[in-house]
Amino acid sequence: MMMLDENKLAKRKKLRQSIAFGILSTLSYSIIAILFIILSFIIYKGIGVINWNFISQMPEEGMTKGGIYPAIIGTLYLVGGSILFAFPIGVLAAIYMNEYVKDGIFKKIIKQMTNNLAGIPSIVFGLFGMSLFVNKLGFGDSILAGSLTLGLLALPVVIRTTEEALKAVDNTFRQASIGLGASKWETTSKIVLPIAFPNIITGLILSIGRVSGETAPILFTVAAYFLPKLPTSIFDQAMALPYHLYVISTSGTNIEESRPIAYGTALVLIIIVLIANLLANGLRKYFGNKVKMN
């Protein structure tokens, strides 16, 4: 009798577990399904639109025909500009935080502020960029103002990933280098940075992916609905892919007719993100294996 009860209990326990696990795995896979639905929908609708002309031509007839060349160029400028600003400062800041500054109130403040900066919504960056770069410093709506705004947004991302990369470097390397008489900077630049380099680059690539899709910060700092010619200096306005997608899908004059262009633009954005993610993961895996082999 006793045996049977225990058996029953064990069976019930097992049944409960299988039900719970079944639900959990279904829910988890449904998230993956959502991702695939979004991706495949955009790819399915956009793939027919994308061809060489779409990428290399100017928009025509009120965005209903032609390509998205100026938006691609604008996004390239913006990504380049913001990375040029955020990458060096971010990496240096992370080196300072991880290698130089001692634990204490100063470090705490900087850390806290970096966290706060990371939590600020992108539209607030837009407001800030508009009032400082566009108005106060007089850059106007320009690539410069947009790049700086986006750069500030990317800064915490770069700092965080670089810090993680530096933390992953084993301390014995530092000790050995210092022990051999190398100075702090020599140790950092010749030992620590080269080891951390792949992970730093991974962070850089991911932040490029992020910056290229940001819309809210560029709304009021650089983005233009339509420009008949390409920007020639950093003080010019520019079109940008995410803003282009937003405008032609919500407030264009012929929303229906410009839908194919919108699908194409969304796909281009997705492709950029996909490439950035694949590249970052690939690098991680490649260098991860390499370190293990050593």
Partner: peptide, 12 residues
């Protein structure tokens, strides 16, 4: 990747 998709694409 889900985190990487731009918000404007989600909106679209």
């Amino acid at each position: 990747l889900l985190a990487g998709i731009p918000s404007v694409v989600y909106g679209f």
